[in-house]
Simulated assay, not measured.
Amino acid sequence: MVERRVFSEGHQGKNLRYVKNEPTSAPAHTRVGFFLLEHFSLPAFTQALDTLVTANLLQANLFATHTFTLGGGEVTSDLGIVIRPDADLRTHRLEDLHLLVVCGGLRTPLRGNQELRLLLKKAAEKGIALAGLWNGAWFLGQAGLLDGYRCAIHPEHRPALAEAAKYSQVTSESYMVDRDRYTAASPNGAFYMVLEWIGQRHGAGLVDGIVDILAFEASRYRRVNPKLHIKMTPPLREVVKLMEANLEDPLDLEQLSAYVKRSRRQIERLFKDQLGTTPLRYYLELRVTEGRRLLQHSALPVVQVAVACGFVSPSHFSKCYTAYFGYPPSKEARLN
């Protein structure tokens, strides 16, 4: 029997969808509600929604999403696309939600609504996390729900929020997370805001998997722990690039050391401190991950995939592959 292995943080997210674990009961849904204001930013909304949908692709049934308006009627987005919501927020059980997101937009009028204000206060009293997209933060602030919080809002509406929520700290950040308040000033900010919320609930592995799919270029050398916001240092980045460029004929640690002009011990320390693993383990996981991609997206036979990924024999490749994924490469689904 092959001993099971777990991917280190650096490769966990990339393979999360494909690791075969022991069957467990389906996790309980985390429910997210999107309250859509007139002329809400469709790009900001879809960025937030796509982040949750991608999380479900990696780990099934994590999130359930719902859209709301007051009265349940249709609403027109900033792009002129009409959206029919799932329900009327007034009649929905607020306690069923874990996060309620107020979706605004550049042309969303900043008009107070007593009914919405009371519903938002009720949600806060029930311990539901509250969020605002674009100028959605204004409606939270106008309800007194940002007092003592740092928040983000589109630059066009910063003065209005500062006036409506005098006891909040209005920042110039694209997104802000402060305890149970989540605010974003742009579509990109909405992505990172939801990503951080997901990370708080489900950990860095899932966050990395989402980022690997949706924001590859922006995150290629990003540290895997989203709370630290640490990037790989240049020497470690150089070593990783060398590994990625030499999969078929892997370099040993002495060769890597010579190329980057660092001692073996220095390289080992870099991997431990920044990636929480060893160079050899990282290199192996890099090759196993590439093997999975080749099997899924090419017509290469297993023998050629093993060679292309630097394994000394198909049996060694099969043993390593089975240890990480829970099934041999011959059983991998060919997606091409």
Rank of each mutant, 00 (worst) to 15 (best):
V2M: 03
A184C: 09
L57N: 09
L300C: 00
L36N: 06
A184F: 06
H66A: 05
K20D: 11
R334H: 07
F40W: 14
F139E: 06
A258F: 04
R293H: 13
T183C: 13
E173L: 13
L49V: 10
L52V: 07
M243K: 03
S318F: 01
E196G: 00
A123S: 09
L119T: 05
E156S: 11
C320H: 04
L161M: 07
L99P: 12
E74L: 01
E173D: 14
L256F: 13
I210R: 05
Y221R: 03
G132K: 13
R269Q: 15
L242N: 10
G205H: 02
D88A: 04
F63G: 01
S174D: 15
G73K: 08
V288H: 04
S315A: 08
L100T: 05
Y182I: 06
I210Y: 07
D96N: 06
K319F: 02
I83H: 09
A299V: 14
P155Y: 15
V239G: 03
L242M: 09
I83Y: 08
S257E: 12
T277M: 05
L52S: 04
S174M: 12
G148E: 11
W138D: 06
E125H: 11
H297C: 04
L118D: 13
R262N: 07
L120K: 00
Q59P: 03
Q59S: 12
V19L: 13
P109C: 08
F317S: 01
R158D: 08
E125K: 13
F45S: 00
R237Y: 05
A333L: 14
E217N: 11
S330K: 13
N135K: 14
D88I: 07
A44Y: 09
F325N: 04
G33S: 08
R293P: 05
L280W: 15
A299S: 12
S77G: 09
L106C: 00
S318R: 12
R90K: 15
R4H: 08
R158A: 11
S257R: 11
A55L: 13
Y149K: 13
R179F: 02
G136F: 04
A333Y: 05
V82Q: 11
Y175G: 00
L106G: 02
D96H: 09
D88R: 14
E254H: 13
L36P: 04
L120W: 03
R158L: 07
V288C: 00
R90Q: 12
R293A: 05
Y327S: 01
T54S: 03
A185E: 08
W138T: 12
W197M: 05
L286G: 02
I213C: 02
G141F: 15
E254Q: 14
R287P: 02
Q200W: 13
G104K: 03
P155A: 09
A306S: 11
R4C: 06
L247Y: 09
K241F: 06
G13E: 03
A60K: 15
A299D: 12
D178M: 08
F311A: 00
N246W: 07
V224R: 01
A152K: 11
A131R: 07
G209T: 02
I230N: 11
T289H: 06
S315H: 13
G73M: 02
L256V: 03
E244P: 00
A190N: 06
R334D: 05
M232N: 05
G132D: 10
